[in-house]
C-alpha cells in the first residue's frame, strides 16, 4: 500500500476521533469497563493456576501416626517405603518436634499452647516423590496401603489439594468463558454502535467520496482504524486500571493458605500483548459490522 494512503487513513481516523471525541470517550470508557471485568477473571485464573503449579512442584506425603509410635514401627514403614523407586524419606517429626514447629510459627502467640494439657499434634513421617508424571498412580497406591495399617491415623498427599483446586479452576474457567463470551459480544456491540454513529454523521462525506471515485476500501479503512484505536485504548485503559489495582493489593495484602504465603502474579507480558491484540481485533470487528450494515443499505 502506498505511504500516501497510509498517511491519509491515519490522519482521517485521528481527525474522526477528534471530531467525535465525546462519543469516542464514552465508547472507550464502556469498552474499558467490559474489558476490565474480563481481564480480572483472567487474573484470578492466572493466579490460581500459578498457586496450583507451585503446590504441585512439591509432591509430598504426610503420614500421621496414631498416638506415640514405637521407633521400630516407624523404621519398618521407612524400610518398606525406601525400596520403592521415586520415594525419598524426608524426615520423621515426633509429637514434640511438631509442637516446637507450631510454637515457632505462632511466634509471640506461642504462649497460647501452654494452656494445653496434652500435646494434640500427631507424629508424622514426611516423604517426597520424584515422579515425572504427576498423575502417576504410585502415591495413591502407597496412600491406600498405609491407611489400612493400624498405627496410621491419616495420610495426606499434596497432589490431592492441587486436584481439588484444579476442579475449582475448571468451574472458574467455565464461568470465565461464558462471561468472556458475553463481554466480547457487549464490547462488539458498543464499538459497532459508536462507529455507526460516526458513519451516519459522515453520511454526506461518504457519498461525496464515492462520487469523486473513492473505492469502498478507501472509504472504510479510516473507520476500521478508528474502531481498532478505540478497542486498543479501551483495552489499554482496562489493563492499566487492573495493574494499578494489582500494585495496590500486593503492597497491602498478605495472602495465606494455612501458613503458606501465596504470592500474587500479574498477567504475563505475552498474555498482556495477546489481550491488547484481542481488544484491537474486537475494535476492528465492531467497525466492520457497522460499516457492513451501512454499505449494504
Amino acid at each position: 500500500m502506498k505511504t500516501a494512503f497510509v498517511k491519509y487513513f491515519f490522519r482521517q481516523a485521528l481527525t474522526n476521533i477528534a471530531d467525535n471525541r465525546m462519543v469516542h470517550l464514552v465508547g472507550i470508557g464502556t469498552i474499558a469497563i467490559a474489558f476490565l471485568i474480563f481481564i480480572s477473571f483472567i487474573l484470578v485464573y492466572v493466579n490460581i493456576n500459578h498457586w496450583t503449579d507451585e503446590l504441585g512442584k512439591s509432591l509430598t506425603m504426610s503420614i500421621y501416626f496414631k498416638g506415640r509410635p514405637q521407633s521400630i514401627e516407624v523404621e519398618e514403614i521407612k524400610k518398606e517405603l525406601i525400596n520403592i523407586q521415586g520415594v525419598t524419606i524426608d524426615k520423621f517429626v515426633s509429637k514434640e518436634e511438631a509442637m516446637e514447629v507450631l510454637a515457632k510459627e505462632l511466634g509471640d502467640k506461642a504462649g497460647l499452647l501452654s494452656g494445653l494439657h496434652e500435646n494434640p499434634l500427631p507424629a508424622s513421617l514426611e516423604i517426597i516423590f520424584s515422579i515425572a508424571d504427576r498423575e502417576d498412580s504410585l502415591p495413591y497406591s502407597i496412600k491406600s496401603k498405609l491407611e489400612k495399617m493400624d498405627i496410621i491415623d491419616e495420610v495426606q498427599y499434596s497432589q490431592e489439594w492441587t486436584r481439588k483446586i484444579k476442579a475449582i479452576m475448571g468451574g472458574i474457567k467455565l464461568i470465565g468463558s461464558i462471561l468472556g463470551g458475553l463481554l466480547f459480544l457487549a464490547t462488539l456491540f458498543i464499538i459497532t454502535n459508536t462507529i455507526k454513529l460516526t458513519v451516519f454523521a459522515r453520511k454526506n462525506e461518504i457519498e461525496i467520496l464515492r462520487l469523486v471515485g473513492a473505492t469502498n476500501l478507501f472509504i472504510k479503512t479510516p473507520f476500521l482504524i478508528e474502531g481498532s484505536i478505540q478497542g486498543l485504548l479501551g483495552g489499554l485503559a482496562a489493563l492499566m486500571i487492573l495493574f494499578a489495582a494489582y500494585m495496590t493489593v500486593i503492597i497491602r495484602a498478605d495472602f495465606r493458605i494455612g501458613f503458606a504465603t501465596l504470592d500474587i502474579v500479574f498477567i504475563s507480558p505475552f498474555l498482556t500483548v495477546f489481550l491488547l491484540l484481542m481488544s484491537v481485533i474486537v475494535g476492528f470487528a465492531g467497525s466492520s459490522i457497522a460499516l457492513g450494515r451501512f454499505f449494504r443499505t
Binding site: 462525506e205 457519498e207 461525496i208 464515492r210 462520487l211 471515485g213 473505492t215 469502498n216
Partner: peptide, 24 residues
C-alpha cells in the same frame, strides 16, 4: 462493477449544481 465504477469516476470530473463540497 463497484471497483471499476470508482476508477471510472476518477476519469470523470463533475461539477454538481449544489457543489457537494465537504464543509469540514
Amino acid at each position: 462493477r463497484e471497483r471499476e465504477l470508482a476508477f471510472l469516476r476518477r476519469k470523470i470530473g463533475i461539477v454538481f449544481q449544489d457543489f457537494k463540497l465537504l464543509p469540514n
